[in-house]
Nucleic acid binder design. Structure first.
Lengths: 208, 208
DNA sequence: ATATTTACTGACTAATGGGTCAGCAAGATT
DNA sequence: AATCTTGCTGACCCATTAGTCAGTAAATAT
């Protein structure tokens, strides 16, 4: 008998706690999250949690950064090594990326930025610098590449990369708010890209 | 001397309190909002607040509903009495609506749906029934009208009205998260509508 | 003026929740 | 086997906050 009451697992604890915290923050946001619940979900006492994370705030930041950091680099990487035409890139890797984001953990980060960003401005800055600005710049550069190669005509889209990711945003917000109500997000994204490419390739300039 | 310490204003109080609550919930979300702060901002004691609203929860719902209710009806109204072509409607009233929403109070409702919707499912239902579903149905019907009049070709857009409002969503989220970083939301919306109309009017079907 | 009604106050309570710490026991060292 | 180190527990503290209520004074009636 004399079951061991716990194991010492110095290495794994931070990750396990962060993982549990991700779930809890994801569901309740920062203010609504309970540190006790995080500890419980991580199968750990609250005291231990505070041994690895000084404050709730720090835990929150750690959790968000954990998700952000690896994310964008992957896509950036995939581009810079790519030799596809602009259209191929939009229809291929970018479409894929936008389709899976609403299902991924990044969705949660977006939710947290919206709900708690105003009280964690440094997190917003970090998100901006390491994800948003890079991602948008990437898209702009793709469009520009298409324009200068003669593939696309010159449009306002070059300066409005937000237009490209718009369906991803809708799909993400939809999943957050209307999780149960169905929406074919893949089709949403691919139709939008279809529309976009068609617009960028149209020869004669449209009226107005 | 003998300054009157307060005035009795039975009629106006609920609105004034709801107004203050709107600001506070808007800034902090449901869990982060403090009832004391609402009372303070409304220039009222907490006791009085609880005379008009039974719980924080009820106050929250009242606030959200106050903003939702009048909103959609206005647009629906404007449509049913309109005799414009589909394109005119998209470029006119709808563009206008989508341009001003990110600046309006409705933006706050969207934020609250995202951040606190999961813990107030009945509010989400209410929002769905009185705003989202109606608005999307409206847009679908406009597209359909254009299709059946021969103005537009048949595309997936008819079944994906979310595609039409996508730039509004981006603009709204942008304002919430990156308030300080500039974005020409009007141009975002109008360019998108331009793109959309162009797509809907293109004669020859695109490859793929 | 005086009495009556009730909108309103502010001090209170009970409970919650972030954060702490003395002590315990798992595992390493000898 | 005895000792030491430290990862870990859980009971505790206290600031905060949703919600209450006895009493006060503004407006109204008499």
């Amino acid at each position: 008998m004399a079951e061991t009451r716990y194991q010492r697992r110095k290495e794994e604890r931070p990750d396990e706690i962060a993982e549990a915290a991700f779930d809890v923050f994801s569901e309740h946001g920062y203010a609504g999250a309970r540190v006790d619940e995080v500890a419980r979900k991580a199968g750990v006492s609250k005291g231990l949690l505070y041994l690895y994370f000084k404050t709730k705030e720090e835990l929150f930041k750690a959790v968000v950064m954990r998700v952000i950091s690896p994310r964008m680099d992957a896509l950036i990487e995939r581009l810079s090594t790519s030799e596809q035409s602009a259209e191929e890139f939009l229809r291929g890797p970018l479409t894929q990326f936008m389709q899976q984001l609403p299902r991924s953990r990044a969705r949660v980060v977006i939710k947290l930025m919206i709900s708690d960003g105003s009280r964690h401005p440094d997190l917003v800055d970090f998100y901006w610098e390491s994800v948003a600005s890079k991602g948008l710049a990437l898209i702009s550069s793709i469009i520009e590449r298409g324009v200068s190669s003669g593939e696309f005509r010159k449009t306002a889209v070059s300066e409005l990369p937000q237009l490209v990711i718009a369906p991803m945003m809708v799909a993400t917000v939809w999943k957050i708010v209307f999780a149960d109500r169905s929406l074919d997000t893949d089709r949403l994204v691919s139709t939008h890209i279809d529309m976009l490419v068609s617009y960028l390739k149209t020869e004669r300039s449209k009226t107005r």
